[in-house]
Design a binder for these strands. Structure first.
Length: 427
RNA sequence: GGAGAAGUACCCAAGUGGUUCAAGGGGACGGUCUCGAAAACCGUUAGCAGGUCGCAUGGUCUGGCGAGGGUUCGAAUCCCUUCUUCUCCGCCA
């Protein structure tokens, strides 16, 4: 949530910043409401104070034998008088909330404005592999190597899903283990969290109200619950409504969860296989920092995500997203995009973002500094990594003329030392 | 899923309608004493959000006893809803 004070003090600045995200924001109605709320607060509180004073005098007056009925009547009249104003005040407050909670985060000043087309790749690792044979796409490879069963997934679940089988499942598990062991080595705290979350968690993460249609809601649960679309939603809520101490920061977490998303839009035809599905595996990193520590943390998260891909030896690019392509809740986002040869494009495998205090304000995540002063934390998150694009990239980039696929060295310890995946013989 | 009990500040805990603008204890912090420490004694220990006054240390008001409503002149206390925890029962891939 954007700081109301900032909107009040610098409405034009906020308007312009949001415009970079392609968000049209007219501060006037909001400012009017804030002024109205302030006026009403004054009136209501003064009246309340008077009521309290009178009520408190009752025992004394009673003892002295005074007329208590008079006081009762007076307070009752005051309360009645106040009722209307109070209702108005509550209505104004609710309206302010509804106007502010839908606003996206302000983009960092250095970001290009506009959408996707203004994204700026600024670092490349490795090279596009060149094949002296006709390369296969990952769907073909996964099937010929016996790694993934799309048909049976459709049977037991539906479209947009897949089943990892045998070595295919082991490869997926090896990737996750490689990520996990790296994060542990880097001093991040491992978390395994519930996958079913309450609505407040979605709100704090900033996924609601905007993305309410994009998650799976559980029927029959009251209050409503949804299945997490990313572990970020859980991790960033771990310290909701808490006051941390400065010495505790930064807090560094990671969690493995499947991610469940409706992906309500239509599939593009080239997004076959596991490029986009209703469920995919991801290891997610989250940091809580002080309000001055998030830039350092951001760089660390980007580097960690890069290092994971580099360990696998996969060609990728690092992309600084334009304001309009940053996530709704985020002030800045860098995407790491891996090369998928069959598609001829780079696809996101990690999105590292700095929410600054946006999520912290929504979830009252604060810390006390050394002088006892209260601050909002900054929160950051980054995939480290999602497997659903790494896996196809790995198959495609590492394929050999004979249809086999070389397993990166870092994964071999997690796969019983297997170094090559070979096509299964057709019987 | 059913039945019962409970949620009070950093922790324990008293408090079932009005000098409680939340007792008492522990812990923590500060002080006295001491060369220093322990012990003892004295003191501080609702934070927070918001309004308002002030250059400011701060004062004042409103909210605040799990959360949200309600009753009442007045609510930690009564009523409703809800969340969480504990105990027992049921169910159990």
């Amino acid at each position: 949530m954007i700081d109301l004070k900032l909107i009040e003090e610098r409405p034009e600045y906020v308007k312009e910043a949001l415009a970079k995200k392609g968000w049209e924001f007219d501060p006037a109605p909001l400012l009017a409401l804030i002024a109205k709320r302030r006026e009403l607060t004054k009136v209501v509180e003064t009246n309340k104070a008077e009521q309290n004073k009178l009520s408190k005098s009752v025992p004394e007056v009673k003892k002295a034998g005074g007329n208590v009925q008079e006081i009762f009547a007076k307070v009752k009249a005051l309360a009645a008088e106040n009722k209307e104003k109070e209702d108005e005040l509550n209505a104004a407050a609710a309206e302010i909330q509804s106007l502010v909670e839908v606003l996206p985060n302000l983009p960092d000043p250095d970001l290009a404005s506009g959408a996707k087309e203004n994204n700026a790749p600024f670092y490349v690792f490795g090279k596009k592999p060149e094949f002296d044979f006709k390369p296969k796409d990952h769907v073909e490879l996964a099937e010929s190597l016996g790694l993934i069963d799309y048909k049976r997934a459709a049977k037991i679940s539906g479209s947009g899903t897949w089943v990892y089988t045998g070595l295919g499942a082991q490869l997926e598990w090896a990737l996750l283990n490689y990520f996990i062991s790296t994060h542990i080595k880097d001093g991040y705290t491992m978390i395994l969290c519930p996958h079913i979350l309450n609505e407040d968690s979605g709100f704090t993460a900033g996924q609601f109200p905007k993305f309410k249609e994009d998650v799976f809601w559980l029927e029959g649960s009251e209050p409503r619950k949804f299945i997490l679309p990313t572990a970020e939603t859980a991790l960033v809520n771990l310290h909701r409504n808490e006051v941390l101490t400065e010495a505790d920061l930064p807090k560094k977490y990671f969690a493995y969860t499947p991610c469940y998303r409706k992906e309500a839009g239509s599939y593009r035809t080239e997004e076959r296989g596991m490029i986009r599905g209703y469920q995919f595996d991801k290891v997610e990193m989250v940091q809580y920092t002080t309000d001055t520590g998030s830039d350092v943390a951001f760089d660390e998260l980007v580097k960690k995500a890069q290092a994971l891909l580099e360990g696998l030896g996969l060609h990728y690019q690092l992309d600084k997203l334009a304001a309009g392509d940053c996530s709704h809740s985020m002030a800045r986002t860098y995407d790491i995009e891996v090369w998928i040869p069959s598609m001829g494009i780079y696809k996101e495998v990690s999105s590292v973002s700095n929410a600054r205090d946006y999520q912290a304000r929504r979830g009252m995540i604060r810390y006390k500094d050394k002088d006892g002063k209260m601050h909002f934390c900054h929160t950051l998150n980054g995939s480290g990594l999602a497997t659903s694009r790494v896996y196809p990239a790995l198959l495609e980039q590492n394929q050999q003329a004979d249809g086999s696929v070389i397993i990166p060295e870092v994964l071999r310890p997690f796969m019983g030392g297997i170094s090559v995946l070979k096509p299964i013989e057709k019987k």
